[in-house]
Design a protein around this nucleic acid. Structure first.
Lengths: 208, 208
DNA sequence: GTGAAGGTACACCGATCGGTTTCGCTCTGA
DNA sequence: TCAGAGCGAAACCGATCGGTGTACCTTCAC
């Protein structure tokens, strides 16, 4: 692990932060094939310093991914003071997903990409990607439980798959597939009767 | 391009075929980072021969992917003599998709993976992946038109996204997400009223 | 002043990368 | 019988890979 105190806290205000931010950007833009030298140069950090905080390139990759996860999730999920219906909150996520795809420099979901690029099963970066995935699913599940859906686990998993499918489909096509994520999510929510007319929590249709 | 006559026809019965098959396998198992030397050794082909048929590693990658595409598609799509309903044919695709995920050595859809791994926008392999994608969508669209669906293009694109989402979701989780693809497809078909009770070809909604 | 801590600069390591070249063997068709 | 194409083995090229070792600089507490 090889972590110094300043690296953990981030109060360093420099070296490690710069390194991880640059790493997240370069790995996202160019893939995991980016070399250490290019990484350090972009971050303005010497290789010597990098290897003082991390034992290997793989650790840097995982740490950079882990550092970017909270911000990425916060950009997609509704704020803590969003009091709209579960349906609106869920659909909002997919609207923001499609908005990010319109960005120049957009290259898909970094976590989905990493999971495809890194073939080693127990690579630390894969665990980070999986955790992001789980948190997204957990958000969906929470909103669906609030809406009184019959099978919140399955539907939450399906909505996460919509997220994944939108990103990798757009990746294959080389262009953002506008409207695809929101329309799929809406259909899935309709089928589960998660509508705006339904008050959150007051489940009305318990049968089958 | 640098293609000799024997390479094009494939009647060579050896060198090129062995090379592309080994390339498809290794690239799929280990990613595009596999070296030329490992590739040639696995194929039992010298580098010298390889560079007589292909100008670069990138061309080998694209050719290997293109060679594997028809078989991959044939394994997923129904046979030409499948006379079941459009719904059954579509759901059959997703059942087969989930079956392939149960294979040991399964590592996701090779075309979706390549699109994630290769960052260069105009890489020839990306075009191959896109074509596979388009053919899958075209199959869905054909079946949906036959079923008389109102918006076959959108629904076909959604079903392809289910395919993508299943594979990349399973990739992130590191395990096949059993039942996810079939359940999503079934919901989407239900919402579009593509049911077994509906006769194929006897479209009831003629609009668009 | 002094020494430890944290940092940069840079040469360096062995390994491997994509790609080229040379050599010699084998097969084939005239 | 012999020319020539096809191909494998292997040396070789310059570049780059991930990772180290060393020397020097700055900052700051004492």
């Amino acid at each position: 692990m090889n972590t110094s105190s300043t690296a953990e806290t981030g109060t360093d205000g420099g070296t490690v932060t710069r390194l991880l931010d640059a790493a997240a950007r370069l790995f996202y833009e160019q893939g995991v094939g980016v070399g250490i030298a290019a990484l350090c140069e972009a971050a303005g950090v010497s290789k010597r310093s990098m290897y003082q905080y991390f034992d290997s390139k793989d650790e840097v990759l995982a740490a950079a991914l882990a550092r970017s996860a909270p911000g990425h999730l916060a950009r997609l999920l509704p704020g803590p003071y969003d009091t709209t219906t579960p349906r609106a909150r869920i659909l909002g996520v997919f609207e923001r997903i499609e908005q990010t795809a319109a960005d120049p420099g957009y290259r898909g979901c970094p976590f989905v990409s990493i999971a495809s690029e890194v073939k080693v099963a127990d690579h630390p970066a894969r665990a980070v990607a999986r955790e992001f995935h789980d948190q997204l699913t957990a958000f969906f599940r929470g909103a669906l439980v609030e809406a009184g859906v019959r099978r919140p686990d399955l539907l939450a998993q399906q909505l996460t798959a919509v997220h994944d499918g939108f990103f990798s489909g757009s990746s294959v096509q080389g262009r953002p597939l506008r409207g695809l994520a929101t329309s799929m999510a809406a259909t899935l929510l309709d089928a589960a009767q998660v509508g705006t007319s339904r008050r959150s929590g007051t489940a009305a249709a318990p049968s089958t």
